[in-house]
Amino acid sequence: MPIVRTLLVLFPLTAVIAGAFWWTNRPPVVSVVSPFYGSAAEIVYATAVVEPVAWAKVTSIIRERIVSLCGCEGSSVREGDELAVLDSGDARATLAELEARQELAKAERERSFELLERRVVSQQLYDKAQSQLIQINALLAAQKERLRDYRITAPMDGVVLRQDGSVGEVAEPGEILFWIGAPTPLQLVAEVNEEDIPKVTKGQKALIRADAFPDQDLTATVSRITPKGDPVLKNYRVYLDLPADTPLRIGMTVELNIITRDVEETLLLPVAALDGSQVQTLDEENRLQLQRVQVGIRGTKTVEILDGLASDARVMSPFVEDLEQGKKVSPGEGMQE
């Protein structure tokens, strides 16, 4: 009886040990996918701003107080229309002084001429009076030209897209007071990284993502690329034409995906299935094989497979680095086999 009792104890203990051994050495469960056919697109990402095709920034070239503004934001203007007036009190006082000096210089020249004819003074004295008058005339002409800077006018026909500044404020040289342009057509001005610019060419289509219109499919077309890049920011300016019916507005910022190359009906795999140019496939016995493939377009979710993989292959996804080649695995329940 003690022998039978010992056997009865050993039997369940052996079963537990065998079960633990199987559990420890069981094939790991992996996720398996099959390659599939679809479209692949190579894109270049950029950010852009909506601008009119034809527009101008209007600034003051002198530092002076603003005495009047047109209040014409959103209104149409013609080239030469008055937009703002700056305080020209000091400049007009200078003009009046120069005009008075001009009259004195004229009188002095006339007097010198009369004396010269009577041979009372020398030719040199007359020439000096004449020279002084010429100098004052030049100063007077320059001052009259300078007075034009106190009246800011529209440089082109268009709409006042934006007006800044207020009466009483001091306009600084170079400070933009007005944006004037044609409300249509519109364009996008994008900044593209110098590493990506060789892929971008005129005529390429771009997909637009705008926070103001999250549910709309918006597009643009590359129209031109600036020849010289920015060596500091390391980017190039790219202009894209917007369609006439675009809902985008001037000044909006958007994100772009410029499609530099697209392929229809090509073999694809999820990005997670690849480690560089390698994939893990399963043979008929569910043993792991490391396989090198030739890849094409790499997207954010899928990768184009050009060569090295059959369309009916079983591929592990995601790629697991610590599984050695030849190891037997088990495709998970509900996953592709």
Rank of each mutant, 00 (worst) to 15 (best):
Q216C: 01
N235Q: 12
G229R: 05
N257L: 03
Q291S: 13
E265L: 11
V238I: 07
S277H: 12
L207C: 03
D217Q: 12
R261M: 11
G276D: 01
I305A: 02
Q289Y: 04
D217Y: 05
R224N: 05
E264F: 11
V293T: 08
G296H: 12
K228W: 11
V222T: 09
T219L: 05
V295P: 04
L288R: 08
T221R: 15
L207E: 03
L242A: 06
R237K: 11
L233T: 10
T253H: 15
G229L: 14
A244V: 15
L290H: 07
R261P: 00
G296I: 07
G299M: 06
N286Y: 05
T300G: 00
N286R: 06
L306W: 00
I225E: 07
A212Q: 10
L207I: 06
R287I: 10
P270H: 04
L290K: 10
L218M: 12
S277P: 01
V222L: 08
P227V: 10
Q216D: 05
T253W: 12
T219E: 09
L248P: 08
Y239F: 11
K205L: 11
A220M: 11
D262K: 00
N286I: 14
T260C: 04
Q216V: 03
K301H: 06
E285K: 13
I225M: 09
L309N: 10
F213Y: 09
L269S: 03
L256V: 07
G299D: 02
V279E: 08
T260I: 14
S223G: 08
E284S: 03
T281I: 07
D241V: 14
N235E: 14
I259M: 00
L290F: 09
R237L: 12
G251D: 12
R287Q: 09
Q278N: 03
R298H: 06
A272Y: 05
L256F: 00
Q289D: 02
E265C: 04
I259Y: 04
A272M: 06
R292V: 13
R237H: 09
L248W: 15
K205G: 00
G229M: 02
V263H: 07
D307E: 12
P247I: 01
L240F: 09
T246R: 15
L269P: 12
D217M: 10
N286F: 12
R209C: 06
K234I: 09
T302L: 13
A220S: 10
L309T: 11
L218E: 13
N235K: 13
A272D: 01
T246Q: 00
A272C: 05
L242R: 14
V232P: 04
T246C: 15
I297Q: 06
R261A: 10
F213E: 02
L309P: 09
L240W: 14
T281G: 01
E304L: 05
R249P: 07
L306F: 05
L248D: 01
G229K: 01
L269H: 03
A273E: 09
F213G: 04
R298P: 02
L288G: 14
E264P: 00
I208V: 08
A206K: 09
L267I: 03
T281H: 08
T253I: 15
A212F: 06
L267F: 03
L274V: 01
R249S: 10
T253R: 14
L256R: 09
R249A: 14
